[in-house]
């Protein structure tokens, strides 16, 4: 009797592990692949940022980078639809088209972003941010790595709200200001 109960308990536990383990694995993977993004809005103006907006901006910018890295890695411009619009989307779409044409690919390893929110329009319809990005960039011709570098880049980012998220509208690397 005891053996039967033990067997049933073991069977139930094994089934639970088999069912739930892949789900938790996916969640962990998703969190792991999302780049780290922190936001500083201390000097933001003229509109002050709402707490929810600051969370959404941080989340959506992280998703934007995640999808951009994947789009460039897999030569898939459709991945840009979720978090890019305007010139930012046009530029990346063109880059992917050029990648397909040349069989050259740029691969990013994203080590995180420190965002400074610098402008939030009075009507809340545009936000400008300065991103201090830490990246490892690998350029591949076919399967061969022809160039690899570790860079700290300063991006000037313009984001505008969409239906349920903020979209990257303009993404421009600016030289670091010399003091």
């Amino acid at each position: 009797m005891k053996k039967t109960i033990m067997r049933r308990v073991l069977l139930t536990l094994t089934t639970a592990v088999v069912i739930f383990a892949p789900a938790s694995f996916v969640i962990v993977r998703a969190d792991d692949s999302l780049p780290k993004v922190s936001l500083n809005a201390d000097n933001l103006g003229p509109r002050s940022i709402e707490e929810l907006t600051s969370k959404v901006i941080t989340r959506d910018y992280a998703f934007a980078w995640q999808t951009m890295v994947e789009a460039l890695e897999q030569n898939r411009p459709d991945l840009l639809d979720g978090y890019f619009t305007g010139t930012a989307k046009q530029d990346l779409t063109q880059r992917i088209a050029d990648q397909k044409k040349t069989d050259v690919r740029v691969r990013y390893l994203d080590h995180g972003h420190k965002l400074d929110a610098i402008f939030y329009s009075p009507a809340g319809d545009a936000m400008q941010l300065r991103d201090h990005a830490n990246l490892e960039v690998n350029v591949m011709d076919g399967q061969k790595v022809i160039h690899s570098e570790q860079v700290n880049l300063q991006y000037i980012v313009l984001m505008t709200p969409g239906a349920d998220r903020w979209l990257v509208r303009d993404l421009e690397v600016a030289p670091e200001a010399k003091h």
Binding site: R95, T102, V139, I146
Partner: peptide, 13 residues
Amino acid sequence: GTLYLIGPAHLSK
């Protein structure tokens, strides 16, 4: 030699 030029919206070889 082979020259690669990579910019924000451009990649050529």
